[in-house]
């Protein structure tokens, strides 16, 4: 079944993520983010586009506290995460899922162990049978129940992404961050992953930021797109609006 984007919430819906004037530099001369500002509303799928090195991945790493921003605010669920201590940050992190580019599955653990690992640490009240059931349920929702006892080295690129997504979803996050979810996959698998992103969003009512270079994925999944250039947002709008933009540089992404 092909899913469509019919989930945009009303405009008066308050932003669940609000990034303002974010700066991040590496060394003296490498300024990656130069006052980045954007927001994401609850239930929205925001696609972030931009050339390599424009600061897309750095921005979402700052969003989950993997990197410290030099300046600026990152409000998530109404809290500025740049000012939170480790405990406060971990509380927010439990509500955010992060899908890494290559899945980032733990090599030494099977798929079952990869999925139960975060669950056992954060849901100590669950008994082993309940943990196993949760693992099977979440693997069913990404269509990979047969891989439950496989090791990550036995999985294909697309399967790794699905398992990575399942591991992210098992903690029932409200926000999902996708770092290039279709990179390195063939066209068919890319389309399946894009469909999966949409189906997950509709099933779990998540808010998503999707960083991608894959325009088919952007078209399929986006409610709104922001395009970064030199560490700031250069263009913003829906896929159709940006595709027909007057700015030649913006249009060049859609060719």
């Amino acid at each position: 079944m092909k899913l469509s984007k019919n989930h945009i919430l009303p405009d008066n819906n308050a932003p669940i993520i609000d990034i303002k004037n974010l700066y991040k530099s590496f060394g003296k001369d490498n300024h990656v983010l130069k006052g980045l500002s954007f927001f994401v509303k609850k239930g929205e799928n925001l696609v972030v586009l931009g050339k390599s090195g424009s600061g897309k991945s750095i921005a979402i790493k700052c969003l989950v506290g993997l990197m410290q921003a030099d300046k600026g605010t990152i409000n998530v669920f109404g809290k500025d995460i740049t000012k939170l201590d480790e405990t406060g940050l971990n509380e927010i992190r439990l509500r955010i899922g992060f899908l890494f580019q290559n899945g980032a599955l733990y090599d030494s653990m099977s798929v079952r162990e990869n999925l139960s690992f975060p669950l056992l640490r954060h849901s100590s009240s669950l008994n082993p049978i309940e943990v196993d059931k949760a693992v099977i349920d979440i693997l069913t929702s990404v269509g990979l129940t047969e891989a439950i006892d496989k090791m990550p080295s036995e999985l294909s690129g697309g399967m790794k992404k699905r398992v990575g997504l399942a591991r992210t979803l098992i903690l029932k996050p409200e926000i999902l961050l996708y770092d290039e979810p279709t990179t390195g996959l063939d066209t068919i698998t890319s389309r399946e992953i894009s469909q999966l992103i949409l189906s997950i969003q509709q099933k779990y009512k998540t808010t998503s930021i999707i960083i991608t270079h894959d325009m088919a994925c952007a078209k399929q999944t986006s409610d709104r797109i922001v395009i970064l250039k030199d560490g700031i947002v250069n263009a913003e709008g829906t896929y159709d609006a940006l595709e027909n933009s007057n700015d030649e540089w913006v249009r060049s992404f859609f060719i």
Partner: peptide, 20 residues
């Protein structure tokens, strides 16, 4: 080697974002 490869393949980051 084990921790180094976990670091470069973002497995350590994955643990951190899972609040572990």
């Amino acid at each position: 080697a084990e921790l180094g490869s976990m670091k470069v393949t973002e497995q350590i980051d994955a643990m951190e974002v899972s609040a572990i």
